[in-house]
């Protein structure tokens, strides 16, 4: 059976060992502070533009 530090899961083992709780919280806190300075994206739906009726045409089925 493959152990946790075997070549089969190198990234998982590396990632878990590198970040402790304090570092994680520091990162979250920094992210929160930076987000305060960033521009807010307005996720609004653009109002649908009215189409312009064409000139020079006629209806056929009312004839």
């Amino acid at each position: 059976m493959a152990s946790a530090d075997s070549a089969a899961h190198p990234f998982l083992v590396y990632g878990v060992n590198m970040m402790n709780r304090r570092k994680f919280l520091k990162l979250v806190l920094l992210g929160g502070i930076f987000s305060l300075f960033s521009r807010k994206v307005k996720a609004e739906r653009k109002p649908e533009q009215k189409l312009k009726e064409a000139m020079f045409w006629r209806k056929l089925d009312n004839e």
């Binding site: 064409a54 000139m55 020079f56 045409w57 006629r58 209806k59 056929l60 089925d61």
Partner: peptide, 16 residues
Amino acid sequence: MIKRVQCELCPNECVL
């Protein structure tokens, strides 16, 4: 109801 139109702008006279 069928709502066909004919464009009268150019000689192609598309019926749509």
